[in-house]
Structures are given as structure tokens and as C-alpha cells.
């Protein structure tokens, strides 16, 4: 138990420092460490929890708490929460106070400017990792299921690109309802 808690602490503290430009950047490493290295959950379970997490309010990587709960109950959830959110909070607190004093430092702008496209790249890489995982899961259900899944993903994508007025949480809920009928038999 203590070993598991320590492993959770190590993994999620490390992951927290990779979340440049958002939680998605850490997704490929999250999958490697929790699924392939520690076997805390399967790839499918990770994707499912991540997807439910997209509907939850607040910081969008709060799904890590549910991994902690799976591995080591309430204590596991607490350890993961602290490990994942505390290091970056302390770092942000420190850098935030320094930031304005760095106003005239020429590299400040270079760092900000340079990391922006890298953050987008990491976000897209995380999205691709997640997309591949979903395709793998649904391939097992047959080709009709794959077509349905692609149709769901493309409709959500197109809807969100076209309009900002719809809350994405409803679209994910809609996907779940379609899934209830389309993916049941598998």
C-alpha cells in the first residue's frame, strides 16, 4: 500500500510538470506510466475516465483523482491530487511573483513566444494518442462501430468549429447516448 502511494506520488508529480499548455500535453506519458508501466488500469479504462472527466467542471485533468481512487482508495485520490496539483501551483506562485520583475529581460518574450507553438504541438500529440486509443477500442466492435465512432467525432468537431454557443459537455453526453444504442452489442 505504501509502495503504491509512493509510486502514485512519483508518477503524478512528474506528470504535473509536463502539462505545458494544458493537461493534454501529459496524456501520452500518462498512458505510458499508468497503463504500460504500472498497470493501474487498461488503456480503455483510462480513455473512459478521461472522457467522463471532459464533462466535469473545473480544471480539466481532475480525472487523475479517479485513477488514484482506483489504485489506493481515498488516500490514493488525495495523494494523486496533491502530487499532480501542488508542484505546478508552487512553481506558478513563485514565477508569478518574479514575472513582472522580468519585464525588461529579453528572454522572457522569447520563452513565451517559443513555448506557445510547442504547447500546441504537445496538445495535438496528446489528442492523437487519445484518438488512436479510441480507434483501437472501437475496432474490436467491428467496422460499423468504427464508422459510427468516426461520425460522432467528426460531428462534434465540426459543431464546435462552426459555433461557440453550444456547451461541449452536452455533445459528449450526446455521444454517450448514441453509444448506448450503437455500441451495445459488441
Amino acid at each position: 500500500m505504501i509502495n503504491q502511494l509512493f509510486a502514485l506520488l512519483k508518477v503524478f508529480a512528474y506528470l504535473s510538470l509536463l502539462t505545458v499548455g494544458g493537461g493534454m500535453a501529459a496524456f501520452p506519458e500518462l498512458k505510458t506510466l499508468t497503463v504500460d508501466v504500472h498497470h493501474w488500469l487498461t488503456s480503455t479504462q483510462l480513455i473512459h475516465l478521461y472522457s467522463v472527466g471532459q464533462m466535469a467542471p473545473g480544471p480539466n485533468m481532475m480525472m487523475v483523482v479517479s485513477i488514484g481512487e482506483r489504485v489506493a482508495g481515498s488516500l490514493g485520490a488525495l495523494v494523486v491530487f496533491m502530487a499532480f496539483f501542488l508542484p505546478t501551483a508552487v512553481l506558478t506562485f513563485a514565477v508569478g511573483r518574479l514575472w513582472n520583475r522580468l519585464e525588461g529581460w529579453p528572454w522572457r518574450n522569447a520563452i513565451q513566444r517559443g513555448l506557445a507553438p510547442v504547447a500546441i504541438g504537445l496538445f495535438m500529440a496528446g489528442s492523437i494518442t487519445m484518438g488512436k486509443g479510441v480507434i483501437t477500442d472501437i475496432l474490436a466492435l467491428g467496422s460499423v462501430a468504427v464508422c459510427t465512432a468516426v461520425a460522432i467525432a467528426v460531428s462534434v468537431f465540426a459543431t464546435l468549429i462552426v459555433t461557440h454557443r453550444i456547451n461541449p459537455a452536452f455533445l459528449i453526453l450526446g455521444g454517450a447516448l448514441i453509444g448506448l444504442f450503437a455500441f451495445r452489442s459488441g
Binding site: F123, A149, V156, L160, R184
Partner: peptide, 23 residues
């Protein structure tokens, strides 16, 4: 499981849309 498969397909659409908008 069926609902979560559907939700995850929708989530993929959401994150790609977010990625494009961020970009």
C-alpha cells in the same frame, strides 16, 4: 461501456476542435 465508448468518440472530436482553436 457502450455509453463510454460513445462519450470517448465525442471527446476526441472535442479535443481536436480545441487544438485547432488554440492553434
Amino acid at each position: 461501456t457502450a455509453m463510454l465508448h460513445g462519450a470517448s468518440a465525442a471527446a476526441v472530436g472535442l479535443i481536436f476542435a480545441t487544438g485547432v482553436q488554440l492553434g
